[in-house]
């Protein structure tokens, strides 16, 4: 995917790579027949990326508008939020939307890592 976003400034890049506090986590789910819809949450874009990675057994559950709002409010990346809304508007199907979202998030994380100098990512839970 071609990057449509300008690289984030340093401070935003750090936020993109950091987990948000537990209170600002985004609830997500997964459709796993025959268990049904199982709950989960993500606390960083890195975790969202992993949540969206396709597997043969299940479908990730995210709401695009909820994701855009979370990216804007909790992560603080307005440009990324606009792109997420663009995906929601344009994707021909939900699964294709997830695939595009995955690429977009991967790209944004790559940009952020470059900006902060390729240092180790802060990720994982805020426990």
């Amino acid at each position: 995917m071609t990057t449509r976003l300008a690289p984030p400034p340093h401070e935003l890049a750090a936020r993109i790579l950091a987990p948000v506090p537990f209170a600002h986590r985004m609830k997500v789910g997964r459709l796993v027949p025959p268990v049904g819809l199982t709950a989960g949450d993500v606390r960083s874009l890195e975790e969202l990326l992993r949540h969206l990675e396709p597997d043969q057994r299940s479908l990730p559950g995210v709401g695009f508008e909820r994701t855009a709002a979370w990216v804007e409010d909790a992560v603080g990346d307005r440009d990324l939020a606009v792109s997420v809304r663009g995906i929601a508007a344009e994707a021909p199907s939900y699964v294709e939307g997830c695939r595009r979202l995955l690429e977009l998030i991967a790209e944004r994380l790559g940009q952020a890592r470059e900006v902060v100098g390729g240092g180790p990512t802060r990720e994982g839970g805020s426990l």
Partner: peptide, 9 residues
């Protein structure tokens, strides 16, 4: 809530 666990049921 809409879209919390999945976008639709």
């Amino acid at each position: 809530e809409h879209g919390e666990l999945f976008p639709f049921y």
